[in-house]
Design a protein around this nucleic acid. Structure first.
Lengths: 338, 338
DNA sequence: CTGAAAGCGCTTACAG
DNA sequence: CTGAAAGCGCTTACAG
């Protein structure tokens, strides 16, 4: 039986140096002769020495751990992000702790408390709601002066953001639909408590106005009521009411999938009768039949960026000020627009 | 600025007791009077005391942390499992560390080394390959006597398993197809290096034999070659070669999705011309059009079970012996079989 | 039931 | 460049 219990004391005895010198050699402290260092490193290697995490943490008060708060890991955008974050975190010598808060602020607050007790070095949140005051878990971390980044979901003010240019994505989608001759483009809005949907909506409005098309209130629909998915109910109602529509701009792929199911039910063909465009480019958009045209986010790069910015802040390479890192959306042309 | 730096020393000073007594009171040690305990707990609460994780770990050598190794978090079965595991882990007072090894044994071994240095209390692996000798990361943990569970992917011998009765799932699928009058059921095999696919294949074979149907080698196809998805290539080849087939039993939903795309391309209707059944019941099977008939796994219960068994082992409530916890599959009848 | 003291395995001023 | 010593914040035998 045996975890590895080699300590610096063992190395000190084997090499004849003091624990102090061994510690300095292993931490690449400058004040140790090359010869001494070499002997100590060799000995450490031969004994398969692993420094005791707790002892180190107790002295330094650094855990080399960061936390990532996701609203719900079953949301299909997160796995790719998590993977990219994990690779980057590992390469920079840290460990990432995944916290699924299940859209519940109480769980988030509980986690923050627990993790502060573990001296987590920094936090990445993807849990910010539109109203800052509701983001208690983030505000608490910021108040404590612990480095912190908002990824994707942000309120724009509590901390540094790493996010998509959501309005631009809507502009790209609407421009594309216009280029295909669509003029009656309904907008299916997402959860209203998220800023990114506000931005997507504004992008839709401004792009139409820019092209001299008036906003028709009859074409502003909702894919969600609160956190409930309602597109499959709303769409038949709207269409049966006789509203003229030739395209659906959905604020998320979830809504687009619901929309296509609803249209299918009604015998309306996508894209021949009505074009549909989604947002986020989740993995299923490529597997879906017909393959879903969507506005993509560079998830992997954004995840990597969030980790890099955070660790730079932790290590003092970046000031702990509030920045806004904005990424460009990508139009994924597939089969639901014609 | 300030993380919470309240220590037992502060509580000792405020209450007038010694650090020893404070520690005993907080740890619910028996030998402390109710009155003393009450005062100490109140004081701790008023100061929002959080015990220092490192100091505690340094003494106890327990981290209250377990690790979960996933082959690749982008595989769509994992988010639901992770969520269930996380809830259970949290409720039992532990933290879970997610390790995405990206199907790379080197990353797995690196992680094990790192996590042993962090005194992780136990491991849950979903990374076991069919051949035990290849599961070095698991064997190392077992050799060290650290509690360990194999979830879903198991080799059946290295450690306790929490898994599906994969053969039974195949039996259910094949029985269902037979009940619908199908007699030419092709089997599309998954990654051959995973035991669960071996079991699924055997379930298919045995069920046909049980019904007096001979196994036709012409109907044993492959959805994967190594780790490469080849169903979209294989299926047209097989069908164009004139093999008579009325149903595809796919060893995973991934394969089923590929299969339906391939059949679509060829103008073959599902389920009217050929029925298709998948395995795993991943989230997209319900979103897909047509909705995919599949063999489901009780992922949430299995995740919870793996955590419970592991923590019981860690806490000495269960012996560290090799057990086999087997869960029943569920036939999800949807729209791809008629 | 309570306290003084040792010790877990590191790091880091302080000397030399 | 190297060593002796203190200390991080807990827990836990050992006394009383």
């Amino acid at each position: 039986m045996g975890r590895n219990n080699v300590t610096i004391k063992d190395i000190a005895q084997k090499t004849g140096f003091s624990k102090s010198t061994v510690s300095r050699a292993l931490c690449y402290d400058a004040h140790v002769s090359p010869d001494t260092r070499k002997k100590i490193l060799e000995c450490a290697k031969s004994l398969d020495f692993q420094p005791n995490y707790f002892a180190k943490g107790l002295k330094t008060q650094c855990s080399k751990t960061i936390a990532f708060f996701v609203p719900n890991i079953e949301i299909m955008i997160y796995p790719a992000i998590i993977q990219a974050m994990e690779v980057e975190t590992r390469e920079r010598g840290y460990t990432i702790l995944l916290c699924d808060i299940q859209e519940d602020k109480e769980i988030a607050k509980e986690y923050v408390k627990k993790l502060k007790g573990r001296n987590v070095d920094g936090f990445i949140f993807s849990t910010a709601l539109l109203n800052v005051e509701e983001n208690e878990e983030i505000l608490e971390v910021v108040r404590d002066g612990i480095p912190c980044v908002n990824l994707l979901r942000t309120d724009g003010v509590s901390a540094t953001s790493v996010r998509l240019d959501n309005a631009k994505g809507s502009a790209m989608g609407v421009e594309y639909l216009l280029s295909k001759g669509k003029r009656r483009i309904a907008f299916l809005q997402g959860q209203e408590y998220l800023k990114l949907y506000k931005d997507r909506y504004e992008g839709y409005v401004n792009t139409l106005l820019k092209h001299g098309i008036k906003i028709d209130p009859d074409l502003i629909w909702y894919g969600y009521r609160g956190s409930e998915r309602v597109a499959t109910k709303i769409i038949p109602e709207k269409i049966k009411s006789g509203i003229d529509v030739d395209a659906l701009f959905c604020a998320s792929d979830n809504i687009a999938v619901d929309a296509i199911h609803a249209l299918n039910e009604m015998g309306i063909k996508v894209p021949q009768d009505i074009s549909v465009i989604g947002y986020d480019n989740v993995p299923i958009s490529e597997l879906f039949i017909p393959k879903l045209t969507s506005i993509g986010q560079p998830f992997k790069e954004m995840g990597k960026k969030a980790v890099d910015v955070l660790i730079d802040m932790i290590e003092g390479k970046k000031a702990n000020t509030i920045e806004d890192y904005v990424f460009d959306p990508i139009l994924m042309v597939r089969d639901t627009v014609c």
